[in-house]
Simulated scan of single mutants.
Amino acid sequence: MTGNDSGTDQVARSGLVVTVPEAEAAVRAWRDRLDPSVGSGMPAHVTVLFPFLPEARLDGDTLAAISDVIGRHKSFEARFERCGRFPGVLYLAPEPATPFRALTEAVVDRWPETPPFGGQFADIVPHLTIAQGQDDAVLDEAEAGLLDRLPVVTRVASVDLMVHDGSRWRQRASFALG
Rank of each mutant, 00 (worst) to 15 (best):
A97Q: 13
T98L: 09
A131V: 01
I124N: 15
F100C: 07
A97R: 06
R149H: 03
R101C: 14
T104H: 12
F121A: 13
D148L: 11
L150S: 03
R101P: 11
V107G: 02
V125K: 12
A137G: 04
T154Q: 04
A102C: 11
L128G: 05
A144M: 07
A93N: 12
D140E: 05
F117E: 15
V108T: 14
A137R: 00
V89H: 11
V153C: 06
L139Y: 00
P112E: 09
F117R: 07
D136P: 14
T104E: 10
L150V: 05
P151H: 12
P126L: 00
T154W: 03
T129D: 08
R110W: 02
A93H: 12
I130S: 01
R149E: 00
I124C: 14
Y91T: 11
P126C: 00
V107H: 03
T104W: 14
D109Y: 07
F100Q: 01
R110P: 00
V125E: 15
E141G: 00
A122R: 14
Q134C: 13
L103R: 09
V108G: 07
V125G: 11
P112G: 10
V125R: 13
P116V: 07
E143S: 08
G133Q: 10
A137D: 02
E141D: 10
L147T: 08
E105Y: 11
Y91L: 09
T98I: 11
E141C: 00
A102W: 10
G133I: 00
G119E: 02
A144V: 11
P112L: 10
P115K: 15
D109M: 07
A144T: 12
L128E: 03
D123Y: 11
V152R: 02
G118C: 09
Q132D: 05
A97V: 13
T114G: 06
F86S: 06
G84Y: 03
V108N: 06
P99F: 11
P87L: 03
A93P: 15
L128F: 05
E95N: 13
G145L: 01
F121Q: 14
H127S: 12
A102I: 13
G88D: 13
V108Q: 09
L90T: 09
L146D: 05
L90G: 03
P112T: 09
L150N: 00
P112Y: 09
G84W: 00
L92I: 05
P94Y: 04
V89Y: 08
T98V: 13
L147N: 00
L90D: 01
L139K: 01
V153Y: 01
E143A: 07
A97T: 08
G145H: 02
D135V: 06
F100A: 04
A142C: 02
P99Y: 10
R85V: 04
P112H: 09
D140P: 02
